[in-house]
């Protein structure tokens, strides 16, 4: 049985439209495999290439080079075979007919997936209940809050009973409760055997619902692992928490090669962060030599890994 999603050396270059613009390499020889039934997170900052990859897999954008397949079907050559199998949810408030009701929107999209009219009506009703919009189903979308529109987007992605779902920032605008319900829904969809590619900025979301995550930055894949073991993959980013370390010792450790930061904690201890393979051993040796015995090493959280790998570049994209 083929993997649900196979991406092989996909590159996507956007040529400049005007002479003064620059050529943009949105994806640079990206390769990725997602087995059937997996929930896969795609993490990266703005401009990393997440949406570009989702669009290529959704058949709405062509890769410059490389191949991508969904359930064994090429997304460029076999769009007719791919499209009935996929559902897409793009973030943001657009993408719905605002002057129609939520129900009318879903019925339209259901018909485009060639469902019989009775099945469209039944599926629309079920999905509106599932995303918590049953009471507002006959209200115009323009009267919906941002979070409600996002939930309707999600329902639209599910109306075709897709085997593979591409969700691009699906919780944008949702309040925390709705976000939690969304994560529950994702779990249910996994239980139904669907494969989900979830492009997100939300580390909690990725850590909670994803079987594996891929970190992507500037069009290149940095790492692919389970959220919990990603810290092991990049073990060079270990951290050492100490108690009772004298200030001069911490000062000397801070000057060591491979130590990225030494910060005081609120309880009077200190956290030493390393960024090079082997630096942890040297830090521990120095601490023991200085008579510091209350030492604990740990791996960074997904968010810390993300920040370390992607870099704290603020608003720069």
């Amino acid at each position: 049985m083929p993997d649900a999603v196979e991406v092989e050396d996909v590159t996507r270059v956007f040529e400049p439209r005007k002479k003064k613009d620059e050529r943009v390499v949105a994806l640079d020889e990206v390769s990725l495999t997602i087995p059937e039934g997996e929930i896969h997170g795609l993490l990266g900052p703005n401009g990393a290439g997440k949406t570009t990859l989702v669009k290529i897999l959704s058949t709405v954008l062509l890769p410059t080079s490389g191949r991508a397949r969904v359930c064994g079907h090429d997304v460029v050559e076999e769009t007719k075979a791919v499209r009935p199998l996929i559902g897409i949810v793009f973030g943001g408030e657009r993408g719905l007919y605002w002057r129609l009701t939520g129900r009318q929107n879903l019925e339209y999209w259901g018909a485009l997936y060639r469902l019989p009219p009775a099945a469209v009506r039944e599926r629309t009703r079920t999905l509106l209940e599932r995303v918590g919009l049953a009471d507002r189903a006959d209200q115009r979308v323009e009267q919906y809050s941002r979070g409600m529109k996002q939930r309707l987007h999600l329902a639209r992605g599910l109306i075709g009973d897709a085997k593979v779902l591409f969700l691009d920032e699906p919780t944008t605008g949702m309040d925390p409760i709705a976000g939690r319900e969304f994560r529950t829904l994702i779990g249910e969809l996994k239980g139904e055997g669907r494969t989900i590619l979830l492009a997100t900025h939300d580390m909690v979301e990725a850590e909670t619902v994803c079987d594996r995550v891929t970190l992507i930055d500037r069009g290149k894949i940095i790492a692919t692992e389970s959220p919990r073991s990603l810290g092991h993959v990049i073990s060079r980013f270990q951290r050492v928490d100490v108690e009772g370390a004298p200030e001069p010792v911490l000062g000397r450790i801070a000057a060591l090669e491979g130590v990225s930061a030494v910060t005081r904690t609120e309880d009077g201890g200190a956290r030493i962060e390393v960024s090079e393979e082997g630096a942890t051993a040297e830090v521990l040796r120095r601490l023991v030599d200085a008579g510091v015995t209350s030492v604990r090493t740990s791996l960074p959280s997904l968010e810390e890994v993300y920040v370390q790998l992607i870099g704290e570049r603020g608003l720069e994209v």
């Binding site: 669009k55 009935p84 897409i88 657009r94 719905l96």
Partner: peptide
């Protein structure tokens, strides 16, 4: 302009 074209294209119709 309403970001509806991409989802429409991605359907089987």
């Amino acid at each position: 302009w309403q970001a509806l074209l991409e989802p429409v294209i991605a359907t089987p119709t």
